[in-house]
Simulated scan of single mutants.
Amino acid sequence: MVFHFNWKLTLFTLLMLPLLVYLGFWQLAREQEKRATQDSYDLRATEAPRALADINWQSADELAWLRVEAAGQYDNTRQFLLDNRINQSRVGYELITPFRTDSGLLLVNRGWVAQGADRQTLPDVTVMDDETVIRGTVYVPGGDILVLGDEEPVGRNPWPRVVQSLDITRMSALLGEPVLPYSLRLETGSPGLQQVNWQPVTLSPETHRAYAVQWFFMAVVLVILYLIFSFRRPEI
């Protein structure tokens, strides 16, 4: 067998091989991140809820998945519908309702509600307006805010307001008053809860490991193909 140098094949391999290996290790790193997130969630789930007045809102790392208990009152007149939420293959919204407390205005994620017959028909989002006590976990989003579309135009009655992202700053501006920096996802049994439509990780750690194996496999195949096409039998 004689090695025949093909500069195009060599260049392609030199460019693609590091990329495939990088993607494999990147998926392994994502696997570890997801395991850490899941472990943190599981640990926090065993802790007793903290009173809202005792929360230090400055440290995002300490707040993630923290169980909180709050007393206050839902605001029926101004609610948000977080668009493009899928639940069991059905399109709908996550319902975000302001909850007025002695510690400030808290945005509460009450879970998933189905979309109406069309985009113009919004779901009924009323909730009790009496004083009540709720429990939930603090949601600290990771990375940049994902925006899936344009904001809906405001009509004569802009509430409930359809929004494309859980942007606390923008939602505070729409409400015209300051809100606490992170939202609360209701626990099962809390007043006002609709359908739970969230989990601590969107892709399981095992899924990221499977992706990593695929990238590493493609890297091995690339090397094998390079060798096959580079070595030839000598001409007699």
Rank of each mutant, 00 (worst) to 15 (best):
D124Q: 07
Q38G: 09
D144Q: 15
L166F: 12
V201E: 11
G104M: 05
T188Q: 15
A53L: 07
N197G: 15
T10N: 04
R110E: 10
I96M: 09
L17P: 10
Y74S: 08
P178Y: 07
R161N: 08
T37L: 14
A173D: 15
T126H: 14
P18C: 11
D144V: 12
R185Y: 10
T121G: 04
Y211K: 06
L82V: 03
I86W: 13
A53W: 01
P178A: 10
R30H: 01
A212D: 00
D124I: 02
L203H: 07
Q27P: 02
K34Q: 12
S40T: 12
D39Q: 14
R30P: 00
G136Q: 08
P98L: 06
M1H: 11
L11K: 05
V201M: 10
Q214K: 03
V21T: 04
R30F: 00
D150K: 13
G104H: 04
L227F: 13
V113N: 01
V196S: 05
D75V: 15
V113G: 01
T101F: 08
I236N: 13
W65D: 03
S183Y: 12
Q58V: 11
E62D: 15
D75Q: 14
F217P: 01
V108A: 08
S165K: 06
E131A: 15
A210H: 04
R78G: 03
T37N: 06
V108Q: 08
V213K: 02
V220D: 00
G116V: 03
D83E: 04
M128D: 14
E62S: 14
S172C: 09
A64N: 13
